[in-house]
């Protein structure tokens, strides 16, 4: 049963990811990315990372995608200025490198084919993750908040109109 769900969400994720990089219209790419992120969130839920699945939908599909759509509409690139996909030498090399990477990664990891063992009762819940985050990973957590503060200040400085 979980295999069926895995394949459904995996196909959804991969197809929409291909759509992201192949649509000529930037707005269509953004909506395809929403679909990709939703598919990845579903896979998180299948991996029993329920808190992360909720975070994925909230932060990515909520905040990040709104930011993307806002910028796309601000620049008015939706229909007017459509940038061409140029299949240059670099493009061909990129596809070859991508395929090579994928092949190596899959070949190296094909031995990990044992099924998942049963997980603990509260695995992946907000309680489990939160306890770890505020004990063992307290310093990285505080550093992450500091990083977000730096990002806020940086964006204000960058977006300010020069006077």
């Amino acid at each position: 049963m979980s295999l069926v769900f895995f394949y459904v969400f995996a196909v959804l994720t991969v197809l929409s990811a291909i759509a992201v990089i192949s649509f000529r219209n930037t707005l269509s790419s953004a909506f395809a990315l929403v679909l990709t992120l939703f598919g990845v969130a579903c896979l998180y839920a299948l991996l029993e990372a329920h808190f992360l699945a909720a975070m994925q939908v909230l932060v990515y599909a909520g905040a990040v995608m709104v930011l993307f759509l806002f910028v796309i509409m601000l620049m008015n690139l939706g229909r007017g200025e459509i940038l061409k996909i140029k299949m240059s030498f670099a493009g061909v090399v990129g596809i070859l490198i991508g395929g090579y990477l994928a092949t190596i990664l899959v070949l190296r990891l094909s031995y990990l084919s044992e099924p998942f063992s049963a997980s603990a009762e509260d695995f992946g819940t907000i309680k489990d993750v939160g306890r770890l985050m505020f004990s063992e990973y307290l310093v990285p957590f505080e550093l992450a908040s500091f990083l977000l503060l730096i990002a806020i200040v940086g964006v204000v400085v960058l977006a300010r109109r020069e006077t």
Binding site: V20, S29, V40, I72, L101
Partner: peptide, 28 residues
């Protein structure tokens, strides 16, 4: 479903991302 399924999917997604960065010229 095994770990290899998810790692394969992860590799495919990553490769699609690399291809997008190299091939596209639109910054967004």
């Amino acid at each position: 479903v095994t770990l290899a399924h998810y790692i394969t999917l992860s590799a495919v997604l990553f490769s699609i991302g690399v291809t997008g960065v190299v091939c596209r010229r639109n910054a967004l």
